[in-house]
């Protein structure tokens, strides 16, 4: 909370309001296009349910992978010093700035049939292209930086005072990590995971390039929306609304929890 007496410059409200309108107006326009009478039928059709279920499952899986890989990555980046660290950080965050299609092409050239590891994978009997695993990989690739960047920020803000104290009292590095570091940055981890989930849910470009598009296996909700747009624009709008609602349901509780936690610690 801002201490009383420090007001905001009044002119700030104009661009702030414009920005808010710019974000909200298209959403409102989309909602106004929703065909109310068929809404329920459109979003509960078998193809919609299949796509939604696939999206939720793959996004949950990729979020899990992001946590398992991303937490150690963030800790290494925040708590150690090594040569080339700045370069390593930039490279890790690269999928944030690279268009998703490019990420998809990169994944294809790595794990595809004729990719860098494709032959080796084929020998051991693993083929990822055109499977749900490929969807999870594409989502993880683009979502991982979101988790790493927000957790690394949280770790740096939290500082090392408590970790140092625990270590002086004889706690092993693993105990410090588990009992001090993780609980301290839990809100950062949660918001990072939520961001990663949201990014996975919206993933389109890398998935379509790397995984393909087949109902029930690789056709996630965004791809279903893109496809429906050609044939049945009403269904596309209804599904878009569904995606927005799901995203809001995921993000709202988590961001509220984070804010509450931050206020509580101050």
């Amino acid at each position: 909370m801002r201490p009383p007496g420090v007001g905001l410059p009044r002119w700030l409200y104009l661009p702030a309001g414009l920005g808010a309108v710019f974000v909200l107006l298209p959403l409102a326009a989309m909602v106004s296009r929703v065909d109310g009478t068929h809404l329920v039928a459109l979003i509960t059709s078998p193809s919609s349910r299949e796509a939604l279920w696939l999206s939720l499952r793959t996004s949950a899986a990729s979020t899990l992978v992001c946590v398992v890989l991303g937490v150690p990555m963030a800790v290494v980046l925040a708590r150690t010093d090594f040569r080339g660290q700045a370069a390593a950080r930039s490279l890790v965050l690269l999928p944030l700035v690279v268009p998703p299609v490019v990420s998809g092409i990169a994944l294809l050239y790595t794990f595809g049939r004729r990719g860098l590891l494709g032959h080796a994978l084929h020998v051991v009997g693993v083929e990822v292209a055109f499977t749900s695993v490929a969807v999870v990989m594409a989502q993880t690739f683009v979502a991982l930086p979101f988790l790493v960047i927000s957790l690394e920020g949280a770790l740096r803000t939290a500082g090392q005072r408590y970790e140092v104290a625990a270590a002086t009292l004889g706690a092993s590095p693993s105990t410090v990590f588990r009992r001090v570091t993780l609980p301290l940055v839990l809100p950062g981890l949660v918001s990072g995971a939520v961001l990663a989930f949201a990014r996975s849910l919206g993933e389109f470009g890398a998935t379509i390039t790397f995984a393909g598009s087949l109902a029930g296996t690789t056709r996630t909700l965004p791809i279903q929306i893109y496809l429906e747009r050609f044939d049945d624009p009403d269904a596309a709008v209804a599904l878009s609304l569904l995606l927005v609602v799901v995203a809001v349901l995921v993000i709202a509780p988590a961001s509220r929890a984070t804010v509450r936690h931050r206020r509580g610690t101050r």
């Binding site: 379509i208 393909g212 598009s213 690789t218 791809i223």
Partner: peptide
């Protein structure tokens, strides 16, 4: 194994 959105895909 996949039904793509366009010929290019």
């Amino acid at each position: 194994v996949s039904e793509e959105q366009s010929v290019t895909d």
